[in-house]
């Protein structure tokens, strides 16, 4: 995220990381999760699911901040995120 000045406590802020789980066969391709993801990490995939829709796919692995917005906006119970352990602590 772009700031007009770097916050003073930016070193101390721990940003949570998440993993997006997608249940492909429930998706109906409405695109809400893709449109409203605050980190823009989702995209329509090329593959088809069982019903012929294109489910979303995570394009930027490791950038999810586990905000759960895709989970609560999805009308199909097809996507959710779980907290993942940070890879390394700086």
């Amino acid at each position: 995220m772009a700031f007009w000045r770097v916050p003073l406590d930016t070193q101390e802020i721990q940003v949570t990381l998440g993993t997006v789980c997608i249940i492909d066969d429930r998706c109906k391709g409405c695109g809400y999760c893709i449109e409203f993801c605050p980190k823009d990490i989702l995209q329509f995939s090329e593959k088809f699911n069982r019903k012929g829709y294109h489910p979303p796919i995570v394009t930027k692995e490791g950038e999810c901040v586990n905000c759960h917005y895709c989970e609560i906006i999805c009308p199909e119970f097809a996507i959710f995120s779980v907290e993942s352990e940070p890879a390394e602590t700086k």
Binding site: D25, K28, Y53
Partner: peptide
């Protein structure tokens, strides 16, 4: 999957 159309907000 339920019967609601793609893009319908009822599921949300």
């Amino acid at each position: 999957p339920h019967i609601w159309c793609p893009g319908c907000g009822i599921g949300t």
